[in-house]
Design a protein around this nucleic acid. Structure first.
Lengths: 196, 196
DNA sequence: CCATAAAAGCAGAACGGTTCTGTTTTTACA
DNA sequence: TGTAAAAACAGAACCGTTCTGCTTTTATGG
């Protein structure tokens, strides 16, 4: 029994090594991307830096873009938690509004590491598109969380998830993120302001 | 002056030939795709069938997917017309609702040619994604049409365009398209039905 | 009619992300 | 300790896309 004790939660050596390989790849990739830009770093070079075969890269990540969003799952998890564990009796929409407003604020006032990351994504069309695609894929997860944790039926929940996520994506493309979010949630609560 | 008279609207030989080349490529591509599927037809084969160099294909179309949506511009044009030339004094939202409901209906009850086309797109993830991307790109055009033809400011118009287009895309992914559109436009007019 | 320049097209190589083939190493477990 | 599954490997192959350098076609004005 080694002194560096394995907690019961620790998975076996195989899974641990697999996770290490995965992390080595993602780290190598992000470092190179931040240094020289997404387009100017090739998969073969990343594999080299991570000391891994090209096929191994694609055994862990579905595409070059995915290398950048390794911990995306945590973001959705956070959102789902915010929805499911919102104060009892409070409307889902309030929980969504709070989470997305906080997220938008963090985008603007994050630490330097996050800012560098966000700049990389924003200045690389392929990454920006991929990021939006990730959010769009999460709509289904979000919709189920909404439907399960409220008396909203799934069809309504899907529409709600769609409108909120797309409004958020639109807001992140505007200078005045807050104004767009204001407009979005006002519309969702009371309909569009009259327009002739 | 040849007997096959050129109307004044007819452009010169150069532009005409260019359009013919373009059409030859798009026709060859669509025919092959419908026969054997999008993924199982290569660019080199399409170029061969259109009797054209590979580089010529990409001089006319930005990607393989674009070959399929050659007349997409006409669709947006129709939508913009519907918005701009709506009955004087009637709300933009009514015009949008009418157009998108009609479009959804046509998707379901089109002629055989259109149905084959729609099936190709629906069963090919790359094409389905590309089609959605086209719509998302059109949001800006639509937003400007809305802003210019009503007293809606651009920020509101962009949000409106986003919500309508995304609601439409969601609706086309559901069996009951109409129900989703009902829900969408009801929400846009009066806000979400209360959900605890 | 001709000179000339721009546009369109061409052949084929090159590029880069991704997949495939066939093999070897590592881990788990009985 | 033997065995089977999982993980990783080297390197070729695949295919959409771009690049290079060239030829052909069209438009135009002297």
């Amino acid at each position: 029994m080694p002194s560096t004790s394995q907690r019961p939660s620790t998975p076996g050596r195989r899974e641990r090594k697999k996770a290490e390989t995965r992390a080595a790849i993602a780290n190598a990739a992000l470092e190179l991307f931040l240094e020289r830009g997404f387009e100017d770093v090739g998969i073969r070079e990343i594999a080299g830096h991570a000391d891994v075969a090209v096929a191994t890269v694609f055994a862990h990540f579905p595409s070059k873009e995915a290398l950048v969003f390794d911990d995306d799952a945590a973001v959705v998890a956070s959102l789902v938690t915010a929805v499911v564990e919102r104060p009892a009796g409070s409307p889902v929409l309030d929980a969504l509004e709070h989470w997305f407003r906080t997220s938008a604020r963090n985008r603007r006032h994050g630490d330097q590491e996050f800012t560098r990351f966000r700049d990389l994504v924003d200045r690389t069309p392929a990454l920006h598109d991929y990021w939006q695609g990730l959010w769009r894929n999460h709509r289904t997860t979000l919709a189920h969380a909404v439907a399960d944790s409220s008396d909203t039926d799934l069809a309504r929940a899907e529409l709600l998830a769609t409108l909120v996520v797309e409004g958020y994506l639109l807001a992140t493309e505007h200078d005045d993120t807050t104004a767009t979010l204001d407009l979005l949630f006002r519309t969702l609560r009371g309909g569009l302001p009259a327009a002739g």
